[in-house]
């Protein structure tokens, strides 16, 4: 059994389908892909394609209508909330903060999966928070109130919280969609560095340039609810992207930055 678990991919999504209600039809169907340990996977798709729902299914926050999600060979439903959080970290689009918690107070909440119902954080949890602060260079933000931070700062704080959680895979739900250009690049750099350090990262985006920048694998969630998966270089083509977004898009090589970029035609 032990050997089998070792062989199993970190996350295995099989024939997944989801619908909110029968008369509205499936948001997506026949979605299958795997995520290996330490891998970067970008989920690309237009608005409303069901990217966030798909992430919620992986994180155990939504129940798929059909199909299964397995984590280390076991169905996610069989994990308790607490055990699941030891494997999966989830950085959501917005952190809704009702009260004036400081960044430090927020970060230590990442230790929640290791803390019992009637317990409080231990010394080592606070040490881990300090490490994460140094790690993500949050020293200047550490005593600020989370609700006073800008979108980009909040993203970084949420990433630090996942690091405190110490999972195997970190899910990012549209981490760049509310950020300015500089912060978008910074968040993607963080994602890449997380992968370099051994975390698997699954990130959703509607910007086709991002999977090119990030490398790794890409899963394109089409408007008809089906999925195409593969390496970013081979899977992303001008034709596919144009079809996906319903507008003319081109992949062109840009000399100055030595990479392919996705650009649209003239308006």
């Amino acid at each position: 059994m032990e050997g089998l678990t070792d062989m199993a991919p970190l996350i295995e999504v099989k024939d997944l389908a989801f619908q909110y209600s029968a008369h509205r039809g499936n948001v997506f169907q026949n979605v299958s892909f795997t995520v290996e340990k330490g891998e970067m996977l970008t989920l690309l798709g237009p608005n409303g394609a069901g990217k966030s729902t798909l992430l919620n299914c992986i994180a155990g926050l939504a129940s798929p209508t059909e199909g299964s999600v397995k984590l280390n060979g076991e169905p996610v439903e069989s994990y308790s909330t607490r055990r699941l959080a030891k494997h999966i970290g989830y950085v959501r689009q917005h952190i809704a903060v009702t009260y004036g918690y400081t960044v430090r107070e927020y970060l230590v909440m990442g230790a929640a999966p290791r803390i019992g119902m009637f317990s409080t954080p231990k010394e080592e949890d606070y040490e881990r928070v300090e490490e994460a602060i140094v790690d993500l260079e949050l020293q200047k933000l550490a005593d600020r109130t989370v609700s006073h931070l800008s979108g980009g700062e909040r993203q970084r704080v949420a990433v630090a919280r996942s690091i405190v959680q110490n999972p195997e895979v970190i899910l990012f739900d549209e981490p760049t969609s509310a950020l300015d250009f500089g912060n978008q690049i910074r968040v993607m750099r963080t994602c890449k560095q997380l992968v370099e350090r051994g975390y698997a990262v699954v990130m959703t985006t509607h910007n086709p340039d991002q999977p090119i920048l990030l490398g790794g694998r890409v899963a394109m969630l089409n408007a008809d609810g089906t999925l195409a998966v593969g390496d970013a270089e081979t899977t992303l083509t001008s034709e596919r992207l144009s079809e996906l977004y319903g507008t003319e898009l081109h992949l062109v090589y840009v000399d100055e930055v030595d990479r392919v970029a996705c650009v649209s035609s003239k308006l």
Binding site: N56, A59, G60, L61, S80, T81, R82, R83, L84, A85, K86, I88, G89, Y90, R92, I95, A96, V97, T98, Y99, M109, G110, A112, P113, M117, R161, Q165
Partner: peptide, 15 residues
Amino acid sequence: VLSFGDDEARAMGVN
């Protein structure tokens, strides 16, 4: 943790 809302709290491993 609960004051961050249901989904966020669950993602942080709180039943």
